[in-house]
Computed example of a mutant assay.
Amino acid sequence: MQQHDDITPFDRWSRPIEEIDEEIGQLSVACGVYLLEPGVIERLLHNDTSVCDHGNQRAFDKLRQLVMMHYIVTERTVEALGAEQTQELTSRIVDRLRPRFERLLHKPSDE
């Protein structure tokens, strides 16, 4: 059996946050929710389905739950690692996910 002593606390907290955020990105695309637009996350948390361009209640419900879970896990990460390391961890995750999701999470401009 392989030892997991080489896994740092940073790595231990990074994986669940990244998995949650990746699924949030996928569900946002499925629902047509532009999470990076101002006020959208707050409206999503208040169960406002008008933030969706596509009607998919099950996907919206799961997206909302995952956003709430993201906040809970992030709070626990701050408790475990401290604010500075959590910010570094979050920045690394965003840098890895940005190329896949960023253009899909902003509402296209009407140019």
Rank of each mutant, 00 (worst) to 15 (best):
M68P: 00
E37M: 13
S50Y: 01
E84H: 03
N47I: 04
Q3M: 04
T49G: 02
I7F: 14
S14A: 15
T90M: 13
Q87L: 12
S28Y: 09
E23L: 04
L104V: 01
G82Q: 07
E75I: 08
E18R: 11
I7M: 11
D11K: 15
Q2V: 14
R58M: 05
L44N: 00
R92V: 02
E23N: 10
E75Y: 07
F101H: 06
F60C: 09
G39R: 10
I41P: 01
T77S: 09
V29A: 10
R100Y: 12
L66N: 04
L27M: 03
L27E: 05
A30I: 11
E37N: 10
E111L: 03
K107L: 00
R96Q: 07
T49R: 13
S50Q: 14
R98F: 06
E22H: 14
L81E: 06
H46A: 15
D53N: 07
D11M: 15
F60T: 02
N47T: 00
R64V: 01
E23A: 05
D61L: 06
R76L: 11
R76P: 06
T86V: 08
Q2K: 15
V33H: 03
R92N: 15
F10D: 12
W13D: 08
I24G: 02
H106N: 10
F10L: 14
L45D: 06
M1D: 01
V67G: 01
K107S: 04
A83H: 01
D53S: 14
E19P: 02
L27V: 11
K107G: 01
S91N: 10
G25Y: 00
L66D: 08
H70V: 01
H106V: 12
L81R: 00
R64I: 04
N56P: 00
D21I: 01
L97I: 02
E23C: 08
G25N: 02
P9H: 03
L35T: 10
L36T: 05
F101L: 07
Q57A: 09
F60G: 08
L104F: 15
Q3R: 15
I17P: 00
V33N: 03
A83S: 07
V29W: 13
D5M: 06
H70E: 12
Q3C: 03
L63R: 05
S14N: 13
E22G: 08
G25C: 02
L63C: 00
S50I: 00
Q26P: 02
I20N: 13
C52T: 07
G82M: 01
R58E: 15
I17R: 06
R12A: 09
S91G: 04
E19V: 09
D6W: 14
C31P: 06
L36Y: 14
S14P: 03
C52H: 07
Y34I: 05
L66C: 05
T77A: 05
E22N: 11
E79T: 12
P16T: 07
S91V: 02
D95L: 06
W13P: 02
S28T: 08
F60A: 06
R76K: 10
A80W: 03
R15C: 10
L66T: 11
Q3D: 14
H54R: 15
L89Y: 04
W13C: 10
V67L: 06
R96H: 10
I20D: 14
H106M: 12
G25E: 02
A83D: 05
